[in-house]
Design a protein around this nucleic acid. Structure first.
Lengths: 129, 129
DNA sequence: ATAAACTTTCCAGTCACAGGAGACTCAAGC
DNA sequence: GCTTGAGTCTCCTGTGACTGGAAAGTTTAT
């Protein structure tokens, strides 16, 4: 199939599919006589794989690593587990901080009277003027 | 305090602090006679807030909006409250998304044997939609 | 036959920084 | 007083992961 169809099938922008081909992350099956990229089911499968991994917060180099693990079925799954667990630790830290930020913002919101007065206790604390 | 100390206090790279000053996101308190940026506790507080907000995917313009809650005393508090509450909704959505991501990743990581066997639930999960 | 849609390459721009050069300033040690 | 090293300044370029657009060729539908 051509790049447009592959893009639709993987739910990725055409530009992104082309970009992945350019950087050698997911190469198309080959080129047609007209020079068009040809994607077979395997390539589409890899694109889907990468798309999902990216949405999980893996960088492109990490995706390349995962993809190589994916391609080489004989490799130990411990490698994949190690990468995933490192990612979970980072996510937990992010979650904790996000909660903190959310609560801080909520404090600001509740401290606001919500009327037309330009007075806000917490804002006063931060404002220097 | 000078930029290095401010950077250390906020756990941000010096380059980033300078960048925020350049684009007017978090201006230093002023400049010393030698031209060095001077940061007071208010500026440091803002840097900390921005640092956290940025790490959750809030763009710089969005951070500017969040900061305006602290900075703009002339804004009616109803507006402040409205903006704050909209951001809280966005934060909650982000929280939920991250939670989902984290749990999904944790689930497949535990399912992954982590030994030398070729089968890995993580990779399966990526490839099976 | 022609128009619309699709694909190609190439180049520029984006966002939020990061790296490095070259010059200036400051505090400490000799 | 001088040197050394660390810290800071501005300016310029590079990065990651795309995204947009131009100009040209190809395919498909009417």
């Amino acid at each position: 199939m051509k790049i447009g169809e592959a893009a639709k099938a993987t739910n990725l922008p055409i530009k992104t599919v082309r970009y992945y081909a350019d950087i050698g992350l997911v190469a198309p099956d080959g080129r047609g006589a007209n020079g068009y990229r040809e994607y077979d089911e395997t390539a589409v499968e890899k694109l889907r794989f990468v798309g999902r991994a990216r949405s999980f917060g893996f960088s492109v180099p990490e995706c390349a690593e995962l993809l190589s693990l994916y391609e080489d079925k004989t490799r130990a799954s411990a490698d994949v587990k190690r990468i995933a667990e490192a990612k979970i630790v980072a996510l937990d830290a992010k979650l904790a901080e996000l909660h903190e930020l959310r609560d801080e913002l909520a404090r600001v919101a509740t401290a606001c009277a919500g009327d037309s007065r330009a007075k806000c206790a917490i804002l006063d604390r931060f404002s220097k003027v």
